[in-house]
Design a protein around this nucleic acid. Sequence first.
RNA 1: GCGGAUGUAGCUCAGUUGGUUAGAGCACCUGGUUGUGGUCCAGGGGGUCGCGGGUUCAAAUCCCGUCAUUCGCCCCA
Length: 414
Amino acid sequence: MSKLQPIRGTHDLLPDAMRQHRHVVETARATAGRYGYQEAATPIFEATEVFARTLGDTSDIVTKEMYTFETKGGDRITLRPENTAGVARAFISNGLQQNLPLKYFYAGPMFRHERPQKGRQRQFHQIGIELLGVAEPLGDIEVIAAGAAILDALGIRHLTKLELNTLGDTESRDGYRAVLVDYFTQHLDKLSEDSCERLDRNPLRILDSKNPGDREVVAGAPLFSDHLTDAARDYFAEVCAGLSAIGVDYDLNPRLVRGLDYYCHTAFEFTTEALGAQGAVIAGGRYDGLIAQMGGPPTPGIGWAGGIERLTMLSNPHAPAPRPVAIVPIGEAAQARALMLAEDLRRAGYTVELGYSGNLKKRMRRADQQNARAALLIGEDELAAGKATLRDFDSGEQSDLDLDTLVDALAAYR
RNA sequence: GCGGAUGUAGCUCAGUUGGUUAGAGCACCUGGUUGUGGUCCAGGGGGUCGCGGGUUCAAAUCCCGUCAUUCGCCCCA
């Protein structure tokens, strides 16, 4: 490694990329705001147990993907691999149970020690929303609708499809898990090595396997829908009906499961074919047991997270860079006047570039490279006449303007 | 963590029976135009061939290792 390189799986967001990134965040923030979600931020690191306890001892995130460090004081802290546990912790820490329901939007970096590939980084960024304190299907519907609305606002809804499933309540899931383990145990010889391991840790995951052999076995597996309690079945039916009523199309996917332990009832993913192996752009579900499990007052919750980098890859280049007006002094006498003029225009709301050095040609070229809309030339002639020469870069036309009234005369270039 | 592919100029890439000073396009700089950008013309700068070892008279080229990127698996946003 002869050159200084960024840490594996991390990327710089230089201005071009940053504008796309910000466009996704701003679009999401504005759209979520119309659904009543206010932005909040929790720290990017938490006590390790915040994640270790909540995500489940068997999840890959906890077992091998967390960035965990020991502080000088001997505490163990972890860079957040996702944000739901942090929001839940904040809810408990701040005693917010008096203020339910709570609706939060967030955006920020997350960290997972994974093998990088397309659409997968070690430091990546997520937007997300969390709805706490609502146990009704209306909550699920609103949260999913907000996700669809954001994809729509980004112009990429048509590149995705919404996959929907229910993981039922605890009673349903425990019952189904037992039946499933039974079934797969009878077909152990046909299961892949990975899936044999999943049988112990998280048998539901086998349903999601891409292995062709596994898929054959899965095809004959008992269906979750046959093992739902009446309450869980009714709940899911209401969610589906609500989505249909507001025109949010979805596909039922009985194989859709979640990697994290705290999910129940509704699970959903907005997926795309356009990003290779990383299909999920927004994913989430209901987590009614999470807050109680962390020691807080039993409080239902539902939310989702979306990968900003993945959303950016789907979006067309948007957010163009601002086009400045360039001020080009000619000769030393004009320098001082140019500085004052630049400041006046900036205070009046113009985007202004004042070349730092170089001759006229160089400054004009630099202005062109900055995609300036126009250049204001100030030389001896102009100074003597109290004027500036305005050159429009798009049309190539030039005109004289009075220095005194420039702020108004330039209005078209603001 | 596992498997495949790839690392040559700032960027995209040429460069095979190993053989002198390693090339192109774009970008950059200078001049043609000492008060005018974009096009055009002429010229110019820039490369420890990812890094470290090995084979050889000779390595960008062959071998080993290593790091990185990338595609897939696993997992997930």
